[in-house]
């Protein structure tokens, strides 16, 4: 699904990612873990095409296609979804209008007919229930006045509606209480399918108690220093990241 080869990226001239290589197959869930400032969010944003980051070396293929030849919106239409660590507020634009516009852009790109308001509403109601989003939230402005937990659930809700091929979830677990965490995890698990892949970017192991990853990677100082199965996450929880620092050279 996604192949990252020797990826180097920098912000304002200083390099953050120093050669990341990673391969995610269809149907897999990968977790990228690491301490603050290790480059996790940079990796997520570079994949989504944020203009604040410059790719200096390496390549990324999405189903064999060069990702960097695509604009951010084209990547989204091709099936990349980024669950934001800090979802952005857009005053005056209703959540539903925003999501319907997004969905129809993506459907158009895939050669599907645009959904009309009625069909859209019916589809969306179903998915709102899955992540316990109140219908009143749907008509409020995008993320405006949402609590931290509501914003994160809203990201998962959008993912369920837009049905991407690859979902990159950047610290979706941060700031969630245990109930919200479970709701988010359920949403992600229900999204899991043979033809989709998920990249979880997280600081803590606790999300991984509810979502079982196929692979866990440790990102330290812009490099992946260790990869393993789901048990690696538990090991990190126990030992922290310090013991891996020697690997980062």
């Amino acid at each position: 699904m996604l192949e990252i080869k020797n990826l180097h990226a920098s912000v304002d001239g200083s390099e953050i990612l120093h050669g990341v290589t990673l391969k995610i197959n269809r149907g897999e869930i990968h977790a990228v873990m690491g301490p603050n400032g290790s480059g996790k969010s940079t990796l997520a944003k570079v994949l989504a095409g944020h203009q604040g980051y410059e790719v200096t070396k390496g390549e990324v293929l999405l189903q064999g296609r060069d990702l960097f030849s695509l604009s951010p919106e084209e990547r989204a239409r091709e099936g990349i979804f980024l669950g934001f660590q800090y979802p952005v507020e857009i005053p005056g634009v209703s959540n539903m209008y925003f999501l319907k516009t997004a969905l129809n852009e993506i459907r158009k790109h895939r050669g599907l007919e645009e959904l009309d308001a009625m069909d859209f509403l019916a589809m969306v109601k179903e998915k709102m229930k899955m992540v316990n989003i109140d219908e009143s939230l749907a008509n409020r402005s995008v993320n405006e006045g949402f609590s931290g937990g509501e914003k994160k659930r809203n990201e998962i809700f959008q993912m369920l509606v837009l049905e991407p091929k690859l979902a990159i979830l950047d610290e979706t677990d941060s700031g969630l209480d245990i109930d919200a965490l479970k709701i988010v995890a359920n949403g992600v698990n229900s999204f899991r399918r043979e033809d989709r892949a998920i990249l979880l970017v997280t600081h803590y192991q606790r999300l991984l108690s509810y979502i079982t990853p196929d692979r866990v990677h440790v990102l330290l100082d812009g490099r992946i220093v260790k990869s393993g199965g789901k048990e690696l996450a538990l090991e990190l929880e126990e030992k922290g990241y310090g013991w891996l620092e020697g690997n980062a050279a």
Binding site: A48, G49, H50, Q51, S71, P72, E73, R75, A76, R77, F81, L82, F84, P87, V88, E89, I90, P91, G92, V93, F98, L99, T101, A102, L103, E105, I106, H109, S141, Q158, L162
Partner: peptide, 22 residues
């Protein structure tokens, strides 16, 4: 804000229009 819209498949141009209309 623009990047958020783009990441959902909405072009920068359409995003500005949407944000301003909001």
């Amino acid at each position: 804000q623009i990047f958020y819209c783009q990441q959902r498949g909405i072009s920068a141009e359409a995003a500005v229009s949407m944000i301003v209309n909001g």
